[in-house]
Design a protein around this nucleic acid. Structure first.
Length: 499
DNA sequence: ATAGGGTTAG
């Protein structure tokens, strides 16, 4: 590992690299010296008492650190510094000695004279908020002025962001905003940013958008990161429809939002997921106009959206465009396109694409094969489907659950019960279960053919694997076995008993 | 600078 030179890593607030020396005129040097000595004493005493700065190491009860603080400073006859309080507060929080904090705060409030730095209180507010003591955090926020400290937007933003972490606290936000006005805290753009991002995080996009509009009305400049947050959460929620999302997208662009790649990706993904392939295509075209070159992923998503909408002409155009623009399609892209061809029942063309994939050294995968298998089974071409399955074997494309289910349904659909049972055995060995409707279908067909004993055997086997057959299985078994005396009670109810 | 983002299945 290459280390950076110390000077580059250095924090300029560390004494060694401090830009400005402590101002000598405020405190006489000896007073300052005394305070430093007292601080040393405090730190030393803290260590000796077994406090450690490492969190969660102290579990013994400790003497009250506040007295140590006071004693240390008394010994050098000087006043405790804010720094000393900060040190004690940090020690207490790091060692989970929270019970001592209220007394310390009371002392700080009533017996000290100095202006408490906001950062000290901010530290404690954040600590409370993050350790699920939100009410304590809020109380401390309101109490800030009593520590002779003028709260700024920093504290406000912190409290707001803490409240926004959980829905249950969200209702406190308006009250805090109102009261903060009485505390003379000026709301800033950053406050809006905190609130909007928090709303986005908890997927209240509607409110986030309203707030964005307020910001715009109040004359704040458009913040791109806020827009991006809104777009991103817009795309994750399901309260707003894709139509509403499109309107919001358009309005944002109207007021000058320039989406980035991420925004385009999110938007396209959302539209495709909502079945709006043509809208996704629109957005893709905007992206090109904005000079952001779509990559394979963008194209692949839009292609799949077009397949879903059955827009095959657009599909072909876009697939051609990919090649023209020099974007290299990958398995995902080909799979989507092949799926499109299969949906059009153009299986021959699909196989041609597979062949060209192999020429281009883009190896077909399970998804490719499953797509072909599905199309072949649907077309009733079991011969070819079997071939594809065999090929998967030698090409090292492992069959997955879906491959088996597709093939099983293909066989059952064609009434190939013997072969279906054979495949089912193979599945059960691998602990891959059929869809229950497929199993029901097999049993139903077996019963139709009078293979009742076999049907019961198979049901037993699958029930033993704690698979629950559907109603149709039981119905088929009961109806058929009812013809043979005693079968229904002894066998079928026996099966039921196993579960 | 890099990874991850995207595909099939009634």
């Amino acid at each position: 590992m290459v280390r950076q030179p110390l000077s580059k890593r250095a924090n300029k607030y560390l004494r060694k690299f401090r830009k400005w020396p402590h101002s000598p005129y405020k405190t006489p040097w000896h007073h300052n010296f005394g305070q430093q000595q007292a601080m040393q004493k405090l730190k030393q005493a803290t260590l000796e008492m077994g406090f450690s700065q490492e969190p969660q190491t102290a579990n013994l009860p400790h003497p009250f650190l506040l007295s140590t603080l006071i004693d240390s400073f008394k010994a050098y006859s000087c006043d405790p510094t804010p720094k000393a309080y900060y040190f004690v507060i940090k020690t207490l929080t790091n060692t989970s000695q929270l019970q001592d904090i209220p007394a310390l705060l009371d002392h700080l409030e009533h017996l000290e004279k100095f202006e408490t730095p906001e950062s000290v209180l901010v530290y404690l507010i954040r600590f409370y908020g993050l350790s699920d003591k939100v009410q304590d955090a809020v109380d401390l926020f309101f109490r800030i002025p009593r520590f002779r400290c003028t709260p700024t937007v920093c504290s406000l933003n912190l409290v707001l962001s803490l409240l926004c972490r959980k829905r249950e606290y969200l209702k406190m936000v308006p009250d805090i905003l109102l009261k903060s006005q009485h505390m003379n805290i000026r709301i800033e753009e950053s406050t809006f940013r905190v609130l909007i991002k928090a709303l986005c995080r908890i997927k209240r996009v509607g409110y986030a958008i309203k707030m964005l509009n307020c910001m715009i009305e109040d004359g704040y400049g458009l913040d791109e990161t806020i827009c991006s947050s809104i777009i991103s959460s817009l795309c994750e929620q399901d309260d707003l429809t894709s139509g509403e999302a499109m309107i919001i997208w358009r309005d944002m662009r109207k007021v000058g939002f320039c989406p980035g790649v991420r925004d385009y990706t999110n938007m396209i993904r959302f539209l495709v997921k909502e079945g709006k392939g043509m809208d996704a295509l629109d957005v893709l075209n905007q992206q090109k106009q904005d000079g952001i070159k779509p990559d394979v992923v963008h194209y692949t998503m839009v292609l799949s959206g077009l397949v879903a909408e059955g827009e095959y002409v657009k599909l072909d155009q876009l697939f051609d465009e990919i090649l023209v623009f020099g974007v290299v399609p990958d398995v995902y892209t080909y799979n989507v396109y092949i799926n499109g061809l299969c949906k059009q029942n153009n299986i021959d063309e699909a196989f041609k694409i597979v062949a060209s994939m192999e020429e281009l050294e883009c190896k077909p995968n399970v998804v490719t094969c499953n797509t072909l298998l599905g199309a072949l089974c649907l077309a009733g071409d079991l011969r070819k489907a079997r071939e594809v399955m065999k090929e998967m074997g030698w090409k090292g494309v492992g069959l997955n659950l879906h491959s088996y289910r597709i093939m099983l349904d293909g066989l059952v659909g064609k009434g190939e019960i013997g072969e279906a049972c054979f495949l089912l055995e193979e599945m059960l060995e691998k602990c891959l279960f059929p869809r229950s409707s497929s199993f029901d279908n097999i049993i139903f067909q077996m019963c139709q053919k009078g293979l009742i004993a076999e049907a019961i055997e198979l049901t037993k086997k699958i029930v033993a694997k704690s698979f629950v057959p559907g109603a149709r299985t039981w119905e088929a078994l009961l109806l058929k076995s009812g013809f043979k005396q005693g079968f229904s009670e002894t066998t079928v109810f026996g099966l039921l008993g196993q579960n």
